[in-house]
Nucleic acid binder design. Structure first.
Lengths: 172, 172
DNA sequence: AGTTAACACTTGAACCTTCAACTATCTTCC
DNA sequence: GGAAGATAGTTGAAGGTTCAAGTGTTAACT
Protein backbone atom coordinates (compact mmCIF):
# COMPACT_ATOMS: atom_id res chain seq x y z
CA UNK A 1 0.00 0.00 0.00
CA UNK A 2 2.05 2.91 1.27
CA UNK A 3 5.18 1.78 -0.39
CA UNK A 4 3.66 1.42 -3.80
CA UNK A 5 1.34 4.39 -3.88
CA UNK A 6 3.35 6.60 -6.11
CA UNK A 7 6.80 5.74 -7.23
CA UNK A 8 7.52 2.05 -7.27
CA UNK A 9 9.93 1.46 -10.12
CA UNK A 10 8.82 -1.96 -11.24
CA UNK A 11 11.13 -4.46 -12.81
CA UNK A 12 10.81 -4.85 -16.55
CA UNK A 13 10.61 -8.28 -18.14
CA UNK A 14 14.33 -8.52 -18.66
CA UNK A 15 15.10 -7.53 -15.08
CA UNK A 16 12.63 -10.05 -13.73
CA UNK A 17 14.27 -12.70 -15.79
CA UNK A 18 17.72 -11.75 -14.53
CA UNK A 19 16.51 -11.72 -10.94
CA UNK A 20 15.05 -15.21 -11.26
CA UNK A 21 18.21 -16.41 -12.86
CA UNK A 22 20.22 -14.92 -10.01
CA UNK A 23 17.99 -16.63 -7.46
CA UNK A 24 18.26 -19.97 -9.20
CA UNK A 25 22.02 -19.76 -9.60
CA UNK A 26 22.75 -18.78 -6.02
CA UNK A 27 20.37 -21.20 -4.42
CA UNK A 28 21.36 -24.14 -6.63
CA UNK A 29 25.03 -23.46 -6.01
CA UNK A 30 24.63 -23.17 -2.28
CA UNK A 31 22.55 -26.29 -2.15
CA UNK A 32 25.02 -28.21 -4.26
CA UNK A 33 28.08 -27.28 -2.23
CA UNK A 34 26.25 -27.95 0.99
CA UNK A 35 25.29 -31.42 -0.14
CA UNK A 36 28.74 -32.24 -1.39
CA UNK A 37 30.36 -31.27 1.87
CA UNK A 38 27.68 -32.93 3.89
CA UNK A 39 27.98 -36.16 1.92
CA UNK A 40 31.73 -36.18 2.43
CA UNK A 41 31.82 -35.28 6.09
CA UNK A 42 28.46 -34.77 7.70
CA UNK A 43 29.20 -31.08 8.17
CA UNK A 44 27.08 -28.27 6.87
CA UNK A 45 28.69 -25.59 4.76
CA UNK A 46 28.44 -23.18 7.69
CA UNK A 47 30.26 -25.59 9.96
CA UNK A 48 32.89 -25.99 7.30
CA UNK A 49 33.26 -22.22 7.19
CA UNK A 50 33.71 -22.07 10.94
CA UNK A 51 36.45 -24.67 10.92
CA UNK A 52 38.12 -23.10 7.89
CA UNK A 53 38.27 -19.64 9.42
CA UNK A 54 39.54 -21.00 12.72
CA UNK A 55 42.28 -22.89 10.93
CA UNK A 56 43.57 -19.69 9.40
CA UNK A 57 43.53 -17.69 12.59
CA UNK A 58 46.44 -17.11 14.99
CA UNK A 59 46.65 -20.11 17.27
CA UNK A 60 43.68 -21.62 15.46
CA UNK A 61 41.38 -19.66 17.74
CA UNK A 62 39.02 -16.75 17.43
CA UNK A 63 36.73 -14.78 19.69
CA UNK A 64 33.11 -15.76 19.26
CA UNK A 65 32.05 -12.31 18.07
CA UNK A 66 34.81 -12.03 15.52
CA UNK A 67 33.98 -15.47 14.25
CA UNK A 68 30.30 -14.62 13.98
CA UNK A 69 31.12 -11.50 11.98
CA UNK A 70 33.42 -13.42 9.69
CA UNK A 71 31.11 -16.31 9.01
CA UNK A 72 28.12 -13.98 8.78
CA UNK A 73 25.87 -15.67 11.29
CA UNK A 74 24.18 -14.33 14.40
CA UNK A 75 25.92 -14.71 17.73
CA UNK A 76 23.17 -16.93 18.99
CA UNK A 77 23.38 -19.24 16.05
CA UNK A 78 27.14 -19.42 16.34
CA UNK A 79 26.84 -20.25 19.99
CA UNK A 80 24.57 -23.22 19.29
CA UNK A 81 26.64 -24.25 16.31
CA UNK A 82 29.88 -24.20 18.29
CA UNK A 83 28.18 -26.16 21.04
CA UNK A 84 27.51 -28.92 18.54
CA UNK A 85 31.00 -28.77 17.09
CA UNK A 86 32.33 -28.97 20.63
CA UNK A 87 30.13 -31.95 21.42
CA UNK A 88 31.58 -33.67 18.36
CA UNK A 89 35.13 -32.82 19.34
CA UNK A 90 36.01 -30.52 16.47
CA UNK A 91 36.19 -27.36 18.51
CA UNK A 92 36.81 -26.49 22.13
CA UNK A 93 36.07 -23.32 24.05
CA UNK A 94 38.53 -21.40 26.15
CA UNK A 95 38.00 -18.39 28.33
CA UNK A 96 39.64 -15.19 27.27
CA UNK A 97 42.22 -13.98 29.81
CA UNK A 98 42.04 -10.31 28.79
CA UNK A 99 38.29 -10.04 28.86
CA UNK A 100 36.53 -12.48 31.06
CA UNK A 101 33.22 -11.98 29.32
CA UNK A 102 34.84 -13.30 26.20
CA UNK A 103 35.30 -16.82 24.89
CA UNK A 104 37.58 -18.31 22.30
CA UNK A 105 36.55 -21.03 19.93
CA UNK A 106 39.62 -23.18 19.35
CA UNK A 107 40.05 -25.72 16.58
CA UNK A 108 41.05 -29.09 18.01
CA UNK A 109 43.48 -31.42 16.30
CA UNK A 110 40.59 -33.67 15.33
CA UNK A 111 38.81 -30.69 13.87
CA UNK A 112 41.89 -29.78 11.92
CA UNK A 113 42.24 -33.31 10.59
CA UNK A 114 38.64 -33.31 9.48
CA UNK A 115 39.02 -29.96 7.80
CA UNK A 116 42.11 -31.08 5.93
CA UNK A 117 40.34 -34.17 4.73
CA UNK A 118 37.37 -32.32 3.30
CA UNK A 119 38.97 -29.13 2.04
CA UNK A 120 39.66 -30.72 -1.36
CA UNK A 121 36.01 -31.61 -1.75
CA UNK A 122 34.97 -28.06 -1.12
CA UNK A 123 37.65 -26.51 -3.28
CA UNK A 124 36.79 -28.87 -6.11
CA UNK A 125 33.17 -27.93 -5.78
CA UNK A 126 33.81 -24.21 -5.94
CA UNK A 127 36.08 -24.68 -8.90
CA UNK A 128 33.90 -27.10 -10.82
CA UNK A 129 30.59 -25.39 -10.24
CA UNK A 130 31.70 -21.77 -10.30
CA UNK A 131 35.11 -20.82 -11.71
CA UNK A 132 35.27 -23.51 -14.37
CA UNK A 133 31.92 -22.42 -15.74
CA UNK A 134 33.06 -18.87 -16.42
CA UNK A 135 35.46 -17.19 -18.80
CA UNK A 136 38.38 -15.44 -17.09
CA UNK A 137 36.88 -12.05 -17.80
CA UNK A 138 33.57 -13.13 -16.32
CA UNK A 139 35.35 -14.06 -13.13
CA UNK A 140 36.71 -10.54 -12.98
CA UNK A 141 33.28 -9.13 -13.67
CA UNK A 142 31.80 -11.22 -10.90
CA UNK A 143 34.48 -9.97 -8.55
CA UNK A 144 33.63 -6.37 -9.25
CA UNK A 145 29.88 -6.98 -9.06
CA UNK A 146 30.06 -8.71 -5.70
CA UNK A 147 32.50 -6.13 -4.39
CA UNK A 148 30.00 -3.39 -5.10
CA UNK A 149 27.11 -5.26 -3.59
CA UNK A 150 29.02 -6.01 -0.42
CA UNK A 151 30.11 -2.40 -0.09
CA UNK A 152 26.52 -1.28 -0.38
CA UNK A 153 24.98 -3.92 1.86
CA UNK A 154 27.49 -3.43 4.65
CA UNK A 155 26.58 0.25 4.90
CA UNK A 156 22.91 -0.37 5.47
CA UNK A 157 21.32 0.08 8.89
CA UNK A 158 19.61 -2.88 10.49
CA UNK A 159 16.01 -3.74 9.73
CA UNK A 160 13.74 -4.56 12.58
CA UNK A 161 11.71 -7.59 11.73
CA UNK A 162 8.27 -6.64 12.94
CA UNK A 163 7.09 -3.00 12.82
CA UNK A 164 3.48 -1.94 12.27
CA UNK A 165 2.47 -4.60 9.77
CA UNK A 166 -0.20 -7.08 10.50
CA UNK A 167 -1.33 -8.98 13.51
CA UNK A 168 -1.04 -12.73 13.73
CA UNK A 169 2.26 -14.51 13.64
CA UNK A 170 5.03 -11.99 13.36
CA UNK A 171 7.44 -14.83 13.68
CA UNK A 172 10.21 -16.13 11.50
CA UNK B 1 39.01 -38.80 -0.15
CA UNK B 2 39.26 -39.51 -3.85
CA UNK B 3 38.90 -35.91 -4.74
CA UNK B 4 42.01 -34.70 -3.01
CA UNK B 5 44.41 -37.57 -3.40
CA UNK B 6 46.46 -36.23 -6.22
CA UNK B 7 45.32 -33.32 -8.28
CA UNK B 8 43.28 -30.85 -6.31
CA UNK B 9 43.47 -27.57 -8.11
CA UNK B 10 43.55 -25.19 -5.18
CA UNK B 11 42.19 -21.69 -5.31
CA UNK B 12 44.79 -18.96 -5.61
CA UNK B 13 44.63 -15.89 -3.40
CA UNK B 14 42.59 -13.91 -5.85
CA UNK B 15 40.09 -16.70 -6.34
CA UNK B 16 39.69 -17.15 -2.62
CA UNK B 17 39.04 -13.47 -2.28
CA UNK B 18 36.42 -13.56 -5.03
CA UNK B 19 34.76 -16.58 -3.50
CA UNK B 20 34.50 -14.88 -0.12
CA UNK B 21 33.14 -11.78 -1.74
CA UNK B 22 30.56 -13.87 -3.57
CA UNK B 23 29.53 -15.53 -0.33
CA UNK B 24 29.23 -12.24 1.48
CA UNK B 25 27.26 -10.58 -1.31
CA UNK B 26 24.77 -13.38 -1.75
CA UNK B 27 24.19 -14.02 1.90
CA UNK B 28 23.91 -10.36 2.85
CA UNK B 29 21.50 -9.73 -0.01
CA UNK B 30 19.32 -12.68 0.84
CA UNK B 31 19.27 -11.76 4.47
CA UNK B 32 18.41 -8.16 3.68
CA UNK B 33 15.52 -8.95 1.37
CA UNK B 34 14.21 -11.53 3.76
CA UNK B 35 14.17 -9.07 6.62
CA UNK B 36 12.56 -6.33 4.57
CA UNK B 37 9.72 -8.57 3.46
CA UNK B 38 9.34 -10.06 6.87
CA UNK B 39 9.20 -6.64 8.51
CA UNK B 40 6.52 -5.53 6.08
CA UNK B 41 4.34 -8.60 6.12
CA UNK B 42 5.49 -11.36 8.44
CA UNK B 43 6.22 -13.58 5.44
CA UNK B 44 9.56 -15.14 4.67
CA UNK B 45 11.05 -14.62 1.25
CA UNK B 46 10.19 -18.20 0.35
CA UNK B 47 6.57 -17.66 1.27
CA UNK B 48 6.58 -14.52 -0.83
CA UNK B 49 7.95 -16.54 -3.72
CA UNK B 50 5.22 -19.10 -3.37
CA UNK B 51 2.48 -16.48 -3.44
CA UNK B 52 4.14 -14.63 -6.30
CA UNK B 53 4.40 -17.70 -8.49
CA UNK B 54 0.85 -18.74 -7.73
CA UNK B 55 -0.41 -15.29 -8.66
CA UNK B 56 1.11 -15.61 -12.10
CA UNK B 57 -0.19 -19.09 -12.82
CA UNK B 58 -3.37 -19.99 -14.72
CA UNK B 59 -6.26 -19.77 -12.28
CA UNK B 60 -3.81 -18.73 -9.57
CA UNK B 61 -3.15 -22.38 -8.89
CA UNK B 62 -0.28 -24.80 -9.36
CA UNK B 63 0.40 -28.45 -8.70
CA UNK B 64 2.54 -28.95 -5.63
CA UNK B 65 5.38 -30.57 -7.56
CA UNK B 66 5.51 -27.86 -10.18
CA UNK B 67 5.48 -25.24 -7.46
CA UNK B 68 8.29 -26.98 -5.60
CA UNK B 69 10.39 -27.09 -8.76
CA UNK B 70 9.72 -23.44 -9.48
CA UNK B 71 10.44 -22.14 -6.01
CA UNK B 72 13.38 -24.52 -5.64
CA UNK B 73 12.41 -26.18 -2.38
CA UNK B 74 11.91 -29.80 -1.50
CA UNK B 75 8.42 -31.27 -1.73
CA UNK B 76 8.40 -31.90 1.96
CA UNK B 77 9.31 -28.36 2.81
CA UNK B 78 6.72 -27.01 0.43
CA UNK B 79 4.10 -29.24 1.98
CA UNK B 80 4.79 -27.86 5.46
CA UNK B 81 5.07 -24.33 4.13
CA UNK B 82 1.76 -24.51 2.30
CA UNK B 83 0.15 -25.97 5.40
CA UNK B 84 1.12 -22.80 7.26
CA UNK B 85 -0.01 -20.52 4.44
CA UNK B 86 -3.28 -22.42 4.40
CA UNK B 87 -3.67 -22.07 8.16
CA UNK B 88 -3.20 -18.32 7.74
CA UNK B 89 -5.70 -18.13 4.91
CA UNK B 90 -3.36 -17.13 2.11
CA UNK B 91 -3.58 -20.37 0.20
CA UNK B 92 -6.04 -23.22 -0.08
CA UNK B 93 -5.60 -26.75 -1.36
CA UNK B 94 -7.75 -28.43 -3.97
CA UNK B 95 -7.65 -31.95 -5.22
CA UNK B 96 -6.65 -32.47 -8.80
CA UNK B 97 -9.46 -34.00 -10.86
CA UNK B 98 -7.19 -35.51 -13.53
CA UNK B 99 -4.79 -37.17 -11.19
CA UNK B 100 -6.13 -37.97 -7.81
CA UNK B 101 -2.72 -38.28 -6.27
CA UNK B 102 -2.17 -34.66 -7.07
CA UNK B 103 -3.00 -31.48 -5.19
CA UNK B 104 -3.30 -27.89 -6.27
CA UNK B 105 -2.19 -25.00 -4.16
CA UNK B 106 -4.54 -22.12 -4.89
CA UNK B 107 -3.97 -18.49 -3.98
CA UNK B 108 -6.92 -17.12 -2.02
CA UNK B 109 -8.20 -13.58 -2.43
CA UNK B 110 -6.67 -12.69 0.92
CA UNK B 111 -3.37 -14.11 -0.24
CA UNK B 112 -3.59 -12.07 -3.40
CA UNK B 113 -4.33 -8.91 -1.44
CA UNK B 114 -1.38 -9.52 0.79
CA UNK B 115 0.89 -10.17 -2.14
CA UNK B 116 -0.20 -6.98 -3.89
CA UNK B 117 0.44 -5.01 -0.74
CA UNK B 118 4.00 -6.22 -0.29
CA UNK B 119 5.16 -6.58 -3.87
CA UNK B 120 6.39 -2.97 -3.94
CA UNK B 121 8.54 -3.61 -0.90
CA UNK B 122 10.20 -6.55 -2.55
CA UNK B 123 10.64 -4.87 -5.91
CA UNK B 124 12.12 -1.84 -4.24
CA UNK B 125 14.52 -4.05 -2.38
CA UNK B 126 15.72 -5.88 -5.45
CA UNK B 127 16.13 -2.61 -7.29
CA UNK B 128 17.82 -0.70 -4.50
CA UNK B 129 20.14 -3.42 -3.33
CA UNK B 130 20.96 -5.07 -6.63
CA UNK B 131 20.19 -3.29 -9.92
CA UNK B 132 20.82 0.24 -8.68
CA UNK B 133 24.26 -0.77 -7.45
CA UNK B 134 25.43 -1.94 -10.85
CA UNK B 135 26.23 -0.29 -14.16
CA UNK B 136 23.98 -1.38 -17.02
CA UNK B 137 26.74 -3.48 -18.52
CA UNK B 138 27.32 -5.19 -15.20
CA UNK B 139 23.69 -6.19 -15.10
CA UNK B 140 24.14 -7.82 -18.48
CA UNK B 141 27.29 -9.53 -17.27
CA UNK B 142 25.49 -10.84 -14.23
CA UNK B 143 22.72 -12.15 -16.45
CA UNK B 144 25.16 -14.13 -18.54
CA UNK B 145 27.09 -15.39 -15.53
CA UNK B 146 24.02 -16.67 -13.73
CA UNK B 147 22.63 -18.14 -16.94
CA UNK B 148 25.75 -20.23 -17.32
CA UNK B 149 25.76 -21.35 -13.74
CA UNK B 150 22.12 -22.37 -13.84
CA UNK B 151 22.65 -24.30 -17.06
CA UNK B 152 25.51 -26.18 -15.45
CA UNK B 153 23.89 -26.81 -12.10
CA UNK B 154 20.64 -28.07 -13.56
CA UNK B 155 22.47 -30.78 -15.47
CA UNK B 156 24.10 -32.28 -12.43
CA UNK B 157 22.94 -35.57 -10.92
CA UNK B 158 21.75 -35.63 -7.34
CA UNK B 159 24.13 -35.95 -4.45
CA UNK B 160 23.25 -38.33 -1.68
CA UNK B 161 23.84 -36.77 1.69
CA UNK B 162 25.22 -39.64 3.67
CA UNK B 163 28.51 -41.28 2.67
CA UNK B 164 27.60 -44.55 4.37
CA UNK B 165 26.31 -46.50 1.38
CA UNK B 166 22.66 -47.22 0.92
CA UNK B 167 21.34 -46.63 -2.58
CA UNK B 168 17.98 -45.31 -3.59
CA UNK B 169 17.20 -42.19 -1.65
CA UNK B 170 17.03 -38.62 -2.78
CA UNK B 171 14.71 -35.97 -1.53
CA UNK B 172 14.25 -32.54 -3.04
C1' DA C 1 -7.30 -58.89 -14.11
C1' DG C 2 -3.43 -58.80 -11.00
C1' DT C 3 1.00 -57.85 -9.49
C1' DT C 4 4.75 -54.59 -9.18
C1' DA C 5 6.88 -50.45 -9.55
C1' DA C 6 6.74 -45.49 -9.91
C1' DC C 7 4.67 -41.20 -8.64
C1' DA C 8 2.41 -37.28 -5.82
C1' DC C 9 2.06 -35.88 -1.88
C1' DT C 10 1.87 -35.92 3.62
C1' DT C 11 3.46 -36.88 8.13
C1' DG C 12 6.32 -37.22 12.47
C1' DA C 13 10.47 -36.94 14.72
C1' DA C 14 14.92 -35.11 14.94
C1' DC C 15 17.50 -31.38 14.28
C1' DC C 16 18.60 -26.35 13.34
C1' DT C 17 17.61 -21.36 13.59
C1' DT C 18 15.54 -17.34 15.63
C1' DC C 19 14.16 -14.21 19.09
C1' DA C 20 14.07 -12.49 23.53
C1' DA C 21 15.58 -12.82 28.00
C1' DC C 22 19.37 -13.74 30.96
C1' DT C 23 24.26 -13.76 33.33
C1' DA C 24 28.46 -11.84 33.81
C1' DT C 25 31.93 -8.54 32.85
C1' DC C 26 33.74 -4.17 31.42
C1' DT C 27 33.32 1.11 30.74
C1' DT C 28 31.81 5.69 31.78
C1' DC C 29 31.33 9.25 34.38
C1' DC C 30 30.08 11.64 38.44
C1' DG D 1 33.79 3.92 44.69
C1' DG D 2 29.43 3.03 42.69
C1' DA D 3 25.37 3.47 39.56
C1' DA D 4 24.08 3.19 34.74
C1' DG D 5 24.79 1.42 30.56
C1' DA D 6 27.23 -1.06 26.96
C1' DT D 7 29.33 -5.48 25.57
C1' DA D 8 30.27 -10.75 25.21
C1' DG D 9 28.24 -14.61 25.21
C1' DT D 10 24.62 -18.31 26.56
C1' DT D 11 20.12 -20.28 27.03
C1' DG D 12 15.21 -21.97 26.29
C1' DA D 13 11.23 -22.03 23.84
C1' DA D 14 8.88 -21.52 19.54
C1' DG D 15 8.89 -22.38 15.17
C1' DG D 16 11.09 -23.97 10.52
C1' DT D 17 13.58 -27.57 7.80
C1' DT D 18 15.14 -32.20 6.79
C1' DC D 19 14.98 -37.08 6.27
C1' DA D 20 12.76 -41.36 6.15
C1' DA D 21 8.67 -43.67 6.20
C1' DG D 22 3.79 -43.64 5.18
C1' DT D 23 -0.78 -43.36 2.21
C1' DG D 24 -3.15 -43.54 -1.77
C1' DT D 25 -3.06 -43.40 -7.03
C1' DT D 26 -1.55 -44.26 -11.59
C1' DA D 27 1.40 -46.74 -15.02
C1' DA D 28 3.61 -50.85 -16.82
C1' DC D 29 4.03 -55.63 -17.54
C1' DT D 30 2.40 -60.31 -17.78
Amino acid sequence: MMAGMTGTRWLDTSEQCIWRSYLAATSLLEDRLDREISAASGLSVIEYGILAHLSEAEGRRMRMSALADTVLVSKSRLSHQVARLERDGHVRREVCPDDRRGAFAVLTDEGYELLVSIAPVHVDGVRTHLFDQLEPEQVQQLAEITRRLVAHLRELPEVVRCPSARSGAGAK
